[in-house]
């Protein structure tokens, strides 16, 4: 499922850091990586000078991954999203935190656009999981996944990906409004519990421990709260189609992507 990953890279990327990412991606089943760079027409750097990209390629090849280097032009996020689709990538890997705050900020708008535009799942690397230096990388055995679902048919799309994560624990979270009266609330609670149990059973073979809960309140707030409480490494969310009054990628997804300390795996 995560065999072919596209990593957007920019000038200044550190090979050792990328190597760590490569190890972790390999642990999660990656076989090949497409390093993708978008050249901006007004850029200070010459388009023909791609030596830095070669360094990155070499660093990743040391990990044992098959590397392809591709370059594109135009609007950064659109170009990355397009390339991921044409290359048949299974996911796009983005690192949210950079060395310099200004970089994080500049990349922030690209990430937002990419999360909105991409037809391929996007993994946004945040503070958690911490990628250790060295050759081992982050492994499945320590992984805690939080799967936030509204239990609609559309929200089942992340399930095949979650199975691929394996890991120590998967916590399924459903956040909803309270029903208008106690008896409807009781019925709704039982109905949700039953559905969550079904999802739990489906995921049990893939994780050391699978738990679920339903909460009442604002979905983004609850997802962030549970993610911190659980010390989740990855929050898996489905992306909803935006309506005219909502945020471009859905209010919940947008807030969680912006504020979460755990990495985000957003499935379109």
């Amino acid at each position: 499922m995560f065999e072919n990953t596209l990593i957007p890279v920019a000038y200044g990327e550190r090979p050792d850091e990328l190597k760590n990412i490569g190890v972790t991606l390999k642990n999660f089943g990656a076989r090949s990586v497409c390093l993708y760079h978008v050249h901006e027409s007004g850029s200070f750097f010459r388009a023909s000078d791609i030596s830095w990209l070669m360094f990155l390629q070499e660093a990743l090849e040391e990990v044992g991954l098959s590397i392809e280097v591709k370059r594109g032009e135009g609007h950064i996020a659109s170009s990355i999203a397009e390339a991921a689709m044409f290359q048949g990538c299974d996911e796009i890997y983005l690192k949210a935190k950079r060395r310099w705050h200004i970089e994080t900020m500049l990349l922030g708008s690209v990430s937002q656009d990419l999360l909105r535009l991409s037809d391929v799942p996007v993994f946004v690397q945040k503070i958690r999981p911490h990628l250790p230096d060295g050759s081992d990388g982050f492994s499945h055995d320590d992984l805690i996944v939080l799967y936030a679902t509204d239990l609609s048919a559309l929200s089942a799309r992340p399930l095949p990906y979650i199975k691929e994560f394996h890991g120590a624990r998967c916590h399924i979270l459903h956040v909803r409004d309270r029903m208008a009266d106690p008896s409807t609330e009781r019925r709704r609670r039982d109905d949700v519990a039953e559905k969550l149990h079904g999802v739990e059973e489906e995921l049990t073979p893939y994780f050391g421990q699978v738990t679920s809960e339903q909460r009442i309140g604002d979905p983004a707030t609850q997802v962030l709260h549970v993610s911190d409480w659980l010390k989740a490494d990855v929050v898996v969310l489905g992306r909803k189609k935006s309506t005219s009054f909502s945020a471009p990628m859905g209010d919940t997804a947008e807030r969680v992507v912006n504020e979460s300390k755990a990495s985000i795996f957003l499935v379109p």
């Binding site: 409004d177 309270r178 208008a180 609330e185």
Partner: peptide, 18 residues
């Protein structure tokens, strides 16, 4: 319609719950 007691507090069930 929702079968609750005719009290103002009943109308706030969606916010206050139990």
């Amino acid at each position: 319609r929702r079968g609750m007691p005719a009290l103002i507090s009943s109308c706030l069930y969606p916010i206050l719950g139990e």
